[in-house]
Simulated scan of single mutants.
Amino acid sequence: MENNKLINRVQDLGALIALVLLVVVISFISPEFRTVDNFLSLLRQSSINGLIAFGMTCVILTGGIDLSVGSVLALTTAICASLIVKGTPVALAMIIALVIGVVFGAISGIFVTKGRLQPFIATLITMTVFRGATMIFMDGKPISNLGSSFLLKFLGKGAILGIPLPVILFIIIFAIFMFALEKTTFGRRIYATGSNWKSAKLAGVNIDRTKIAAYAISGLMSAMAGLILLSRLNSAQPTLGTGYELDAIAAVALGGVSMNGGRGRIWGTFVGVLIIAVLNNGLNILGVSSYYQDVVKGLVILIAVLSDRKR
Rank of each mutant, 00 (worst) to 15 (best):
V59M: 02
R265Q: 15
F120D: 09
I48R: 07
G101K: 01
L75S: 06
A225C: 04
F111C: 04
L21F: 12
S71P: 11
T62S: 08
I125W: 03
G64I: 08
S47E: 04
L227W: 02
I173K: 12
E182T: 15
I276Y: 04
I79N: 09
L181W: 09
I65Y: 01
I79S: 08
A253R: 09
L75K: 03
T242D: 13
A248H: 03
T210P: 12
S47M: 06
R44I: 01
Y215R: 00
S108W: 03
G50A: 13
F150I: 11
P119E: 08
Q45D: 14
G55Q: 06
L240D: 10
S307P: 02
A225R: 02
A122S: 11
M178N: 15
F39Y: 14
G261S: 06
T77W: 08
I266H: 10
G287E: 04
N196M: 03
P142H: 03
T57E: 13
L246G: 06
Q45C: 05
A213K: 06
I285H: 03
I143C: 06
I110P: 07
S195V: 01
I96N: 11
A277Y: 02
M221I: 00
R116A: 10
F120W: 07
I190K: 05
I7W: 07
A175Q: 12
D294C: 00
E182F: 03
G55L: 04
V72D: 10
L165C: 04
I207H: 03
P142M: 01
L246M: 14
V69K: 00
V102A: 11
I17M: 12
T123I: 05
S41I: 08
I100F: 14
G262W: 02
V90M: 05
G194R: 03
K310G: 00
V20A: 15
W197M: 13
I7M: 10
L202W: 02
F150G: 00
A97T: 03
A15C: 12
L67C: 05
F39M: 12
T126K: 01
F137S: 07
T242C: 00
I65D: 05
E182N: 15
R44W: 00
I228R: 07
T134D: 10
W267A: 12
R309K: 14
S27H: 07
R232W: 06
A216W: 03
L22F: 12
I143Q: 07
